[in-house]
Amino acid sequence: MTIASFITVTCCLFLFGVFVIFSMNMNYIGKQLEQQCELQAYMYLETDEPQQRAVYEKVLQLDNVYDATLETERQAFENFKKQLGEDGDLLDGLEDKDFLRSSIKITLHDIRKSNDTKKAVEKISGIEKVENYQDTVGKVLSLTGAVNKGSTVGMIVLMIIAVFIIQNTIKLSVFAREKEIHIMKFVGATDRFIRTPFVIEGIMIGALGFIVSYAVILFSYTPAISTVKDLIKMFDFLPLQSCALQLGVMMALFGTMMGAIGSAVSIKRHLKV
């Protein structure tokens, strides 16, 4: 019976771990997307370099600004040329023409406030216009929001299912010892005295299940991620070392609690003698 409980717990924990690691990676990707949604502030063509520096300094001092990079006309020209690649020679001879604007790329602490920040940047003299890619911001926000909600709901559902399964498996082992429990009650054993060994057994099963499922996830994570990365090249995924500890703690807690609660619930009915 213990082996059946152990296998069930291990499978549940493995599923739980996969879920946690999936949602951790979705959040990580969400952060990457958020950071790509920066503001871009374009300056008037006639501003010179010292003026541009001054504007840049002012931008940096704004509340919601996380970081900013100044791209002068020259740099913009070089970047443009680089983007054209082999066709870059199309731009030859245009070096001294003022047709590209200097701009400042701004990343934000909180992209939900990007509209306010946009207005603040627009007020700085020397700035002609500010792009904030509002559509993308909105989409990213709703995507990460949905992923967060979805993973919370998913984890709660998984927990309920897991406790239910564990409880039923442990119920079998309690049932096998029903006679013993009955005798203990009649000799005057307290509920706690009877319950404790079962709860410890549940915790042990949870802990064992944790060790096995955690090991499986640890060994398979890096190969799995590199396979996924071959398919979806545009995002980075969490490296193992930066999620292993958090995952381990969550799985260990989940496993032992599941075991303890499952045992306590299964035995409750048998104590009413």
């Binding site: 009650k185 009649f186 000799v187 005057g188 054993a189 307290t190 509920d191």
Partner: peptide, 11 residues
């Protein structure tokens, strides 16, 4: 209920 075990120890 939690006192019942102590009753049974005297029986």
């Amino acid at each position: 209920r939690r006192k019942i075990p102590y009753l049974r120890r005297a029986q």
